[in-house]
Amino acid sequence: MNETEPVVPRPRGRDAVAYAILSLISIYCAIPFVWLVLASFDANAALFLRWPSPWTLNNYIGIFVREGGARWFFNSFVVVGAATIIVLVFSGFGGYALSRTNAWWKRPFLYTIILVRVVPPPALVVPLYSILLTANNAVASFVRSLLAPELMRPAMLVVGLIDGYLGLILVFAAMQLPLALWIMKTYFDTIPYDYEEAALVDGASLFQRLRLVLAPLALPGLGAAGIFAFISAWGDFLMPLIFLSSSELQMLPLGLFRAFLRVQQIDYGFLSALAILYMLPAVIAFGFARRYFVQTFSGGVKA
């Protein structure tokens, strides 16, 4: 954070007020985690706040030993990671195009993609399922023509659009693209055209310009767009619930969600330990990307 601080000396009292307000906000943000952390180390965890007795690591160990925790993590990383990469590449190109074009469709397009995101996911599930199933059948007959029958199933687990990695990757990417496009478009708006003109004078083609000049400059924007896409896809549970079935493909939110009523009584220790591990990657990613935010969003919206 390299913003200039005012040089006018501030009275100390103001700092005290600032501390007070910030402390209240921090307590509000932090307090719900107290129970989660305690319960995750508690052998007899309950829905209620209690001091762990006895302390245990079994809740964490159980995720990987009793359940397929490692597989859930692997699948979540594959699906959300791939979706994030698609979002980065597509929104990088698309955001640049939207920033530099003055075509008549620019504004209608921008508003359409952002406003269509108000449709809550439950309304999209059924139409999405039929589209993906149609595409899935096409993919399946293509794969069948290439591979021996015994390789069909493992192949479809990867490239299948229903109950396969690819389908969920595309769904996540599509859901996150509108916001990412907005972020990248507004970010490219802040990068002066001069840079490109210099390259243009040197005779660089559009793709050379993108690769050599704009890609390095776009990093902070991509960092911010990527982190929002990652966190939002990482936390989604409805789409994995509907589109994945095979045990090989189970992801973290499903592991967590299924644990709820799998047995009549909820295992709160297991659930909180899993919840902590589940949120950890998103927290870490946020920590890394924080420095990109200021640079990315300082432009706001410009004509």
Binding site: V125, V126, L241, I242, S245, R258
Partner: peptide, 16 residues
């Protein structure tokens, strides 16, 4: 194939 246990989620997935 293990389905989600809460009854409503089970039905949501199965009926879809």
């Amino acid at each position: 194939v293990e389905y989600p246990a809460p009854e409503k989620d089970y039905l949501t997935k199965l009926l879809t």
